[in-house]
Design a protein around this nucleic acid. Structure first.
Lengths: 211, 211
DNA sequence: CATAGTAATGTCAGCCGCTGACATTAGTCA
DNA sequence: TGACTAATGTCAGCGGCTGACATTACTATG
């Protein structure tokens, strides 16, 4: 039996939710443009709402904070991250897992290259942005990693410190790779930088007796 | 020849700066008390200023943000951290260094036990607090570690990812130890927990092929 | 010790992020 | 078509934080 209403190829279902998505996208675009042109602190949430042609109240119904608007594409990426983590074999070595997962996010990075650069530049300039990046975005990522790693090691992350330590080291690797990538104006091979930094985790054991 | 004015054993020099320090201390005490009694969000900066018997404007001259008031004792601790890092032999293995440095901060932890517990409890409850802890306090600590480690390894931390990775792993260790300590109501041996977590860093090499 | 200089505080007005409450518009579904 | 409800609009207000200027309180000097 065929689907009773085989109309459109599954766009965001209803017109209502399509409009909602558009409003959200408009707000993010307006924010990106104004942040780019005038700076982060110099742009008010009312400015953004106005440019997106909605009320300020609507902006705050779509985004908890001004920073969340800048990082509005992160929820999607986090879902991809979780899916990628879940898709790997359970007995895979941790570092191999991490490398593979990061590589699997490659096309997302490429799709949002421009926005990633903007986020990185603003985070380097405005404390409110770097603070949000650290405290919310990166912490969410870290949480995903801790869950996945502790499952693989079959340990309780509240007891065994290793999952959180590995996750922390991984986030540091991503951070420094991002910094190098941003410093080069986004021209370098981002994923290459990440893989290099991740590989450094495996060489930490050489450090107990340096030089 | 004797000191011409051998009056007091070197308290904060002038009366002016003594009063300033007292105002700062009063504000921190007022904040701690109100946070304790009524919660963080439920306490306004005006409430705190009032209890400390100064204007709200004065509060913000002493502390950049409301969160900075809660963590007002961290500057002192960070100075101790830096001094401790500098005091260790340059050829000491990194993990030994980290362990020793943490142990050297023991009495400071003990002196501010009550405040540490308050900070941890509030961070577990109020996003604004945990955000500040992550983005400002912990990041400052991490920066100190990166500097010290990169000097010891004689590498540029902008190029070689290892100092930042070790620092990130170390901060994770401190974080999880703090969480365990807080969960136990501050009764556990905090430094023991930290040392245990730090030791786990050295065992990461066993993880490339888990189980 | 009087006085000039200045650090610390007080006062006031105001911006901006963010929220609750209620009204209004616009898809949705019988 | 009409009831239902999700999304938005409107408005008022709180609270963190800041600039500008006045005032107070300590310090240094002749």
């Amino acid at each position: 039996m065929l689907d009773p209403s085989p109309r459109l190829p599954e766009l965001p279902e209803s017109r209502r939710s399509r409009k909602k998505s558009k409003t959200r996208a408009d707000l993010m675009a307006a924010g990106a443009r104004l942040f780019e042109e005038n700076g982060y602190d110099e742009t008010t949430t009312s400015d953004i709402a106005e440019l997106a042609d909605v009320s300020q109240r609507t902006l705050f119904r779509h985004f908890d904070t001004k920073e969340a608007l800048l990082y509005g594409d992160m929820e999607e990426l986090q879902i991809e991250l979780r899916a990628s983590l879940a898709s790997r074999p359970a007995d895979e070595p941790i570092l191999t897992l991490l490398r593979a997962v990061m590589l699997s996010l490659a096309d997302n990075f490429e799709r949002h290259r421009q926005r990633r650069l903007l986020q990185a530049r603003l985070a380097a300039t405005y404390p409110a942005v770097s603070s949000y990046s650290r405290a919310v975005v990166q912490t969410n990522w870290e949480r995903e990693l801790i869950v996945a790693i502790s499952e693989r090691l079959d340990v309780d992350p509240l007891v065994d410190p290793r999952p959180e330590i590995i996750a922390g080291a991984t986030m540091s690797a991503i951070r420094i790779a991002t910094r190098q990538w941003t410093a080069g104006g986004g021209k370098a091979d981002y994923l290459g930088l990440i893989v290099d930094a991740l590989d450094a985790i495996g060489r930490l054991s050489e450090l107990e007796h340096p030089v």
